[in-house]
Design a protein around this nucleic acid. Structure first.
Lengths: 246, 246
DNA sequence: CGGGGACTTGATACTGTTCAATTTCCGTGG
DNA sequence: CCACGGAAATTGAACAGTATCAAGTCCCCG
C-alpha cells in the first residue's frame, strides 16, 4: 500500500500544477498570457489554506465568496436531501475547481469535504470577474471551465440513467485512472480516498453492491483490490464493460 | 386537450419573455441596464429561427458558434452512447438557454431536438463574450446562467442516484409544473411534449415503468392522465412522495 | 380511413437492495 | 509496540423494485 503510494510519482506537469500560482494559472492553460497578465492573476490568489481530513471547505447554504482550486489532496462534494439521504456529486483532485455551483444563487449548493489532508487556493470571485473581463482569453477559459463542469455532470447523468452496476464501476475506475494519468501518476495503481459508501452514493448504488462488484472484478482478474488500494490489471476489460451492448 | 391548451393563458411576464429582445434580455434580468446597453444586446441577437417538430437544432459534434434561447416551443437534449443507448439530459422551454455544454470543447456535446414546432434566438457566442466583458452585470448574470445549469444537473443527479421510480416521476411533474407557472401557464394542467420513452430516459427508467407509474398515480387520484394531457389533482401528495423517508 | 408509432397492461426474470453476521482495517491510547 | 475498539468492508440469503418480453389498444398523421 505504501509501495503503491510511492509508485504514484510526480511528473513535471503534475509538479507544475501543484505550485500555487500554477493552480490558478490552470485557468488560462490553453493560451500564452503576457507576464503582466500573469502577475495580475497571481495577485488575485489569496493565501493557501490547509484543510484537514474530514473537515468541510464550505457547507450548503454558506455565502459564496470565492472559488477554490485544489492544490493538493482530495475532496468530495455532496448534496444533502431533507430526509437525510446524501448524494455525492463529485470527487475533486489536484488542479480541479470547487464551488462553481454557488455562483447561481450566491450561496453554496453543496458541501465540500476533504477526504484527506488537503490544501486549496482561494480565488475571490468578484476579483476573478474583474480580471477576466480585462483579459479575454482568461474570460473564455473560465467559461470553458464552467461548461466542462456541465459536461461532466451530464456524462454522469448518462452513467446513472443508463448503465448497470458493473458498467458504472468500470466507468468510475477508468475516469479516476485517466485523471491520475493527467496528473502524472501511475495509470493502473492508485489509492481510493473515499469509502465504499461514497462511491455508492456517487454511482447510485448501495455500498454492498460496490463491494460485491469490486470482489467480482477481483475474482475475474480485471483488477486487484486490497481495501482502498486498486490495481487495474486489464484496462481493456473495463473498457469493454462501459461500451458493451445492452 | 384543446381545452387544456387554451387554459394555458399567457401572463404578461410570459408574453414579455416571448418577444425576441426580451428572450435575450432574460440574460440580464436581475439588474436594470442602461438603454444604450440594451441596444447593444439587441444588436447581438441574430434573426429568429423556426425549428420544426422533430428536427435538430444542433447535433453532437457540430461546431459551436452560438447559444440559443428558446423563444417558443419545447426541446430535448440528449447524449448518444456509442452502443446506441440514448440519454435525455434535459427538456428546455420558453426562455431557457441551449448549448452551454458546447463552450468547453467548441463543439456540441449533445443533440438538441425540437419536440414541437419552435423558435429560437441565436446568440453568437464570441459577440456575447465581447459584450459581456464590457457590461459587468451582464457578465455576472451569464455566469449565473452557467452555474444554474450545473445546479440543475446536480439535482438531477440526486434524483437519479437516490430516488425510486415513484419519487422520480413525482419530482419530474412538480418541476414541470413549477416551470409552467413561472411562465404564466396553469400550474396543474399541461400537455407533455415528450414521449414516455423520453421521460423514462431522462429519469433513468423504462417507458413501461413510466406508464405504469402514471397509471398508479391516476388510480390513486393524485393526477389524471389522458395520454399526454396531465392534470395534477393533489400536488401535496406529489410533494410528500419526493421528500418522504426511505 | 388506414397504418404505424405510442401507450397500456400482464406475466416473468433478474438486478440490486435490505438485513444480518462476520471479518478486516486503522487510529488511539495504554 | 501492542492491544483495543469502532468504523469500514465483505459476504450470504431473502426480498423488492424494475426490466424484459409479449400482447393488445389507442390515437395521431398522412
Amino acid at each position: 500500500m505504501d509501495a503503491i503510494q510511492r509508485s504514484n510519482v510526480f511528473s513535471l506537469q503534475a509538479f507544475r500544477s501543484a505550485c500555487s500560482e500554477c493552480t490558478v494559472r490552470e485557468l488560462c492553460l490553453p493560451v500564452g498570457l503576457k507576464s503582466t497578465e500573469i502577475k495580475e492573476l497571481d495577485r488575485l490568489i489569496d493565501t493557501r489554506h490547509p484543510i484537514s481530513k474530514g473537515t468541510t471547505l464550505y457547507r450548503s447554504g454558506d455565502r459564496f465568496r470565492a472559488l477554490y482550486a485544489v492544490r493538493t489532496g482530495f475532496f468530495k462534494t455532496c448534496l444533502l436531501h431533507e430526509d437525510g439521504r446524501e448524494q455525492v456529486t463529485g470527487f475533486q483532485m489536484m488542479g480541479e475547481l470547487l464551488g462553481m455551483d454557488a455562483i447561481s444563487t450566491d450561496s453554496h449548493a453543496c458541501d465540500a469535504v476533504a477526504l484527506e489532508d488537503s490544501e486549496v487556493c482561494e480565488i475571490p470571485f468578484e476579483a476573478l470577474e474583474q480580471v477576466s473581463s480585462k483579459i479575454p482569453t482568461l474570460q473564455h477559459h473560465f467559461h470553458r471551465m464552467l461548461s466542462r463542469e456541465i459536461v461532466r455532470d451530464q456524462s454522469l447523468l448518462m452513467l446513472l440513467g443508463s448503465m448497470r452496476a458493473e458498467e458504472r464501476l468500470a466507468a468510475f475506475l477508468l475516469n479516476l485512472s485517466k485523471r491520475f494519468v493527467e496528473r502524472g501518476f501511475a495509470k493502473d495503481e492508485f489509492i481510493l480516498r473515499m469509502t465504499r459508501e461514497d462511491i455508492g452514493s456517487y454511482l447510485g448504488m448501495k455500498l454492498e453492491t460496490v463491494s460485491r462488484t469490486f470482489s467480482r472484478f477481483n475474482a475475474e482478474g480485471i483488477i486487484s483490490v486490497h481495501g482502498k488500494a486498486i490495481h487495474i490489471q486489464q484496462p481493456d476489460a473495463l473498457n469493454d464493460l462501459t461500451s458493451r451492448h445492452s
